[in-house]
């Protein structure tokens, strides 16, 4: 189970001053569901997921995974999660088998159990052919499979997919989505971020739409369809973004207006 309460992240930017990448994000994802984090590039999806993955510390707010606090108990949290992202690369000079084994052992798995689990994983993900292939010689699709195996080797209850389909061809992307659905059916809690509507539509039970670090809309697919009266989810998304941009522009305008006479 994932809980985020008022998560904020502020980066220092030399030119613009403090930049809010995430603004009081709150949500909750339960076991057996795929929770979607949808938003355009730079919306704060990766920041949010990195906080859940204990790679970043929130400026304020609390994130909990199965009750463990991401900020104060990062090691315990990392045992609970499998983290897969487009930016988690594979070691070039390590074979698929070695990499998965390495992470399994970092999770302190018993050798016998680890071996058993790896055999099952390699079987399930159809990775036996690339067992002894070095990372540097793999295609993007193969690497993504290894990443999934790496993230699942300790059988975590929570899985985090951050733009995991980036750069994958249709076939591989489809098989990844199937894997995610399979994980959901096993009762895992999956959080899946993407900027591609179709994927989110296909996978997610509930969705949060993020834009510039803030939640624009949230709810189940049906709720969102009903609320915004569009058949196509892509239209819902674009409409939301457009309206928000308009609002921001107006805000800025009204903010600047009283200054004009002074200038």
């Amino acid at each position: 189970m994932i809980e985020a309460i008022g998560l904020s992240k502020v980066y220092d930017d030399l030119k613009l001053g403090p930049r809010v990448a995430l603004d009081r994000l709150s949500f909750r994802a339960d076991p057996g569901e795929v929770f979607g984090l949808l938003g355009p590039n730079g919306a704060g999806k990766t920041t949010a997921l990195r906080i859940l993955g204990t790679l970043l510390k929130p400026t304020s707010g609390v994130a909990r995974i199965n009750g463990f606090d991401c900020e104060t108990q990062p090691e315990l949290v990392r045992h609970q999660i499998g983290y897969i992202s487009a930016s988690t690369a594979m070691y070039d000079r390590m074979t698929a088998w070695e990499l998965v084994e390495y992470f399994g052992r970092l999770h302190q798995l018993d050798r016998e159990l680890l071996r058993e689990r790896m055999e099952t994983l390699f079987e399930r993900l159809a990775m036996n052919e690339i067992r002894d292939v070095l990372g540097g010689k793999m295609s993007t699709g193969m690497k993504q499979k290894v990443a999934i195996a790496r993230a699942m080797v300790h059988d975590p209850p929570v899985l985090i997919f951050d733009e995991a389909t980036n750069g994958l061809d249709v076939l591989v992307a489809r098989s990844l989505l199937d894997t995610v659905l399979g994980l959901r059916d096993q009762g895992k809690c999956v959080i899946f971020s993407s900027h591609i509507m179709r994927e989110v539509e296909r996978l997610c039970c509930r969705i949060v739409v993020l834009h510039r670090g803030r939640i624009l809309a949230e709810g189940s697919l049906d709720e969102l369809h009903a609320e915004y009266e569009y058949d196509d989810f892509e239209d819902v998304f674009l409409d939301l973004i457009q309206r928000e941009e308009q609002r921001l522009a107006e805000d800025e305008h009204s903010h600047n207006a009283p200054l004009e006479p002074l200038a």
Partner: peptide
């Protein structure tokens, strides 16, 4: 540079 550090940091190793 190769992006593997992020992978390693998600492991339970301190």
């Amino acid at each position: 540079e190769r992006g593997t550090l992020e992978t390693l940091l998600t492991s339970p190793a301190q």
